[in-house]
């Protein structure tokens, strides 16, 4: 393993310090318990998210006007602890209440639930939503359920805009749930990610093979397959998404082509080109595009596609101003 780090156990804290230095105009770092908050406390509903580190810019990169009020970074690939969400809720939450945005992993769900219980016990208004957009996993009572992956950035943007314009906690939660109901993702990897504390890649793939349906922690996917040209890989990702999310002709979608961290931008745009083409062949309208590294898995090589069926309200909220480290427009 080669990494530009000091001690593995200091990775998250030091990275947060660097982040806070670079974006002092936007955020404040709270060191203990660790969370990153908007510099100016939001007037309306406060969105708080968090999760294991190693997926940057998620979530810290989305703290700011029109998106998250605070982000709680856990250790690398480890969900944060309840103390972090509790402290963040006390800091950024106000009369309008707090909405917790949880990615569906056993650990995340349990730690956020504990935090919600503790916060409610202290008299805070707290609601939560759980995103599970990864179609690679069968959603059944026999598994931990679908994972929350790159669709999270679409969720945080749209719900964040609703909060920013002063919608009520109920309304923000409702739009968040509408996004969750209408977004699907699927990823693939050419190589694994190396967790600093582990020191070696969490999986290795033979030359000439890729893993279809990978999770953002290197959880295995549906199957290992011989590597194919980019256009065919895109089809292999979009097929299960479109099977799961029935779209009528002429419906509008937001398309996210998301890099897993180690994939050159050239490759992301090659994939995006085919994804747009394929959706348009199906008679869909790609109303908005997002391409880049948004929900990563350290140095993993690979990408995911996310498709959100977007109604006019979602598109309006998508277009609303946002000012964060990793997503910025209109502000």
């Amino acid at each position: 393993m080669k990494k530009i780090i000091n001690a593995p156990q200091n990775v998250v804290r030091e990275a947060c310090e660097g982040f806070a230095l670079a974006h002092a105009d936007l955020v404040t770092l709270h060191p203990e318990p660790l969370f990153i908050a908007r510099r100016e406390k939001p007037a309306g509903v406060a969105l708080i998210s968090g999760g294991g580190s190693g997926h940057e810019p998620l979530h810290s990169g989305f703290v700011g006007r029109g998106m998250l009020a605070a982000a709680c970074p856990g250790e690398v690939f480890t969900s944060p602890v309840p103390d972090q969400m509790l402290a963040a809720a006390k800091e950024v939450g106000g009369e309008a209440g707090v909405l917790l945005i949880i990615k569906n992993y056993t650990g995340d769900v349990m730690n956020f639930e504990l935090a919600a219980e503790l916060a409610q016990a202290e008299g805070l208004r707290v609601e939560s939503v759980t995103i599970d957009d990864d179609v690679a996993v069968q959603d059944s009572t026999w598994t931990a359920g679908r994972r929350g992956v790159a669709g999270t950035v679409l969720l945080e943007k749209i719900a964040g805009a609703a909060a920013e314009e002063g919608q009520s906690l109920e309304a923000v939660k409702a739009i968040a749930e509408r996004v969750i109901a209408n977004v699907r993702s699927m990823g693939l990897a050419l190589s694994g990610a190396t967790v600093p504390a582990a020191g070696k890649p969490n999986f290795t793939l033979p030359d000439g093979e890729y893993e279809l349906g990978i999770g953002i922690h290197g959880e295995p996917g549906r199957e290992r397959l011989p590597l194919r040209p980019a256009d065919e890989l895109v089809e292999a990702l979009l097929e299960p998404i479109l099977n799961d999310l029935p779209l009528a002709e002429n419906e509008s979608v937001i398309l996210l082509t998301n890099g897993m961290g180690g994939t050159p931008q050239l490759e992301l745009y090659i994939a995006h080109r085919r994804a747009v083409g394929l959706l348009e062949e199906r008679g869909l309208r790609v109303a908005r595009h997002l391409v880049g590294n948004f929900v990563t898995s350290l140095d993993m090589q690979g990408l995911s596609l996310s498709v959100l069926r977007a109604d006019d309200e979602m598109l309006r909220l998508w277009d609303a101003p946002v000012h964060t480290a990793a997503l910025r427009w209109g502000a």
């Binding site: 318990p33 294991g52 856990g74 250790e75 480890t78 969900s79 944060p80 602890v81 309840p82 103390d83 992993y105 056993t106 650990g107 349990m110 730690n111 504990l114």
Partner: peptide, 12 residues
């Protein structure tokens, strides 16, 4: 364990 571990095993 609740305050320091995170993940599934901390709360458990």
């Amino acid at each position: 364990f609740i305050s320091k571990v995170g993940g599934a095993s901390g709360p458990l």
